[in-house]
Structures are given as C-alpha cells and as structure tokens.
Simulated assay, not measured.
Amino acid sequence: MPFYRFELVNTKSIEDEGGTDLDDDIEAMDSADMLARRILEERPDLKNRHYYILVTNEDGEEIVRLPLEVIH
C-alpha cells in the first residue's frame, strides 16, 4: 500500500498532519477532504486565508492541493 503525507500549508508548511498508508490516490484525496472539513470545524478562521491541504506520496510527488476555500 502506498504511503501518503498530509500537511496544512499557507506560504509554508504550517502543520504536519502526519501520514498513512492508503489504497490509492483517490483514497488520499478523499482523506484530504475529510481532514480539511475537520480542520475547518475546529478552526473556521482559516477559511478564505489561502490555506490548503497538501498531499504527497512516498516519493514526495504532489497528489493534490486542496484549498480550504472550496470546502462547504
């Protein structure tokens, strides 16, 4: 199973949210969405301030960059 890392980022990495083994990139994107929702529930002040969840694979390649602004 591939390993994916999740980070909360603005102009630099703000918080390393850790990593996990997941089946594929789609599952990593779904996990990023759930993480973004949880962060906004706890910290609604981060919305509309250019924060995003950055997901990279075990090789450091970017899988998705999910802006918190797109979460409803």
Rank of each mutant, 00 (worst) to 15 (best):
V70H: 00
R65Q: 13
E61M: 09
V64H: 11
V55L: 06
G60W: 07
E7Q: 14
S13L: 07
L46G: 09
H72Q: 14
V55P: 03
I63G: 07
L46C: 08
T56Y: 06
E17T: 00
D30V: 03
R49K: 14
I71H: 01
N10M: 07
T20S: 15
E17W: 10
G18H: 04
Y4C: 03
E42P: 08
S31G: 02
E58T: 01
G18Y: 02
P67E: 11
I26D: 11
R5M: 06
V55H: 01
M34R: 13
L40P: 12
E17M: 12
D30W: 02
D23G: 03
N10R: 14
R43S: 09
E17H: 10
D24G: 09
V64W: 02
D59C: 10
F6G: 01
M29C: 15
D45L: 07
D25H: 10
I71K: 06
I63L: 06
R49C: 09
G19M: 04
E41G: 13
D23M: 08
D16L: 09
M1Y: 00
S13P: 09
V55E: 05
N10Y: 04
R37N: 01
E61I: 11
R37S: 05
I39W: 01
D30F: 05
A36C: 00
L46Y: 11
R38G: 00
L40T: 09
M1F: 03
Y51G: 12
